[in-house]
Amino acid sequence: MGDGETVTVSGPADARLNAQRRAATCNVDVDGRGRVLVAATRQPLGQSFFWPPTDRSEPAPEPLALGDKGLLWDTGARVALTCKGAEDSFELELGISGSVEHVKPGTSRALFTSLMTKYLESAKQQTGCGT
């Protein structure tokens, strides 16, 4: 997400969500300016996440083939999935957004796809999604 001198991370170091801890957000600042926001939200099974209409976004998002539903923009990605397990079932939403001013033009969507792919696998393990 670009070079800098000082990196500051605020938020939890994990996405270990459960029925009591339903959300986690982490901000990464470089040289005092926000570069990346990462979020995870857990809801009871059957409650869907509300995503605003995307037909007004410029440039338009594209589907992201991760989870049950995913969208990819130039400035981030969102994924929602249903986690069904032997002991616990729930809905999980993951989001990554960031400043792309330090990213080579035309490469941000590939970058956010890569980041979300890694984040999704980590979040599934940490939340016990599907176990």
Rank of each mutant, 00 (worst) to 15 (best):
N18P: 01
G46A: 04
D88P: 01
G32P: 02
L37N: 12
A39Q: 14
D14R: 00
E5D: 11
P12V: 12
R16N: 04
P52N: 09
Y119D: 00
Q47W: 05
P59Y: 04
Y119N: 07
T127A: 07
T41A: 12
S99E: 04
P52F: 10
V103K: 02
P44A: 11
K124N: 06
Q125D: 11
L45R: 15
D88E: 14
L120E: 11
K124Y: 01
G70M: 01
D88N: 14
Q20Y: 08
P53Y: 09
G95Y: 06
D88G: 05
R56F: 15
T6W: 11
R109M: 05
A23Q: 14
E101F: 00
L66R: 06
M116N: 02
G46H: 06
M1D: 05
C83S: 09
S108K: 01
D29W: 13
A65G: 01
P53E: 13
G67Y: 08
V79Y: 10
V103Q: 08
L64Q: 02
E87G: 11
V30L: 06
S57T: 14
N18E: 04
P61H: 03
R35Q: 10
I96H: 03
R42W: 00
K118C: 00
S57A: 15
I96F: 01
A40L: 06
L81I: 02
A19S: 14
L45K: 14
D74N: 09
T8E: 15
D3H: 06
T75V: 02
G98T: 07
A40G: 06
F90H: 11
G34P: 12
A23R: 11
G85A: 10
I96K: 07
G2D: 09
L115C: 04
D3A: 12
K118S: 11
V9I: 14
G130Q: 06
G76N: 08
G32W: 03
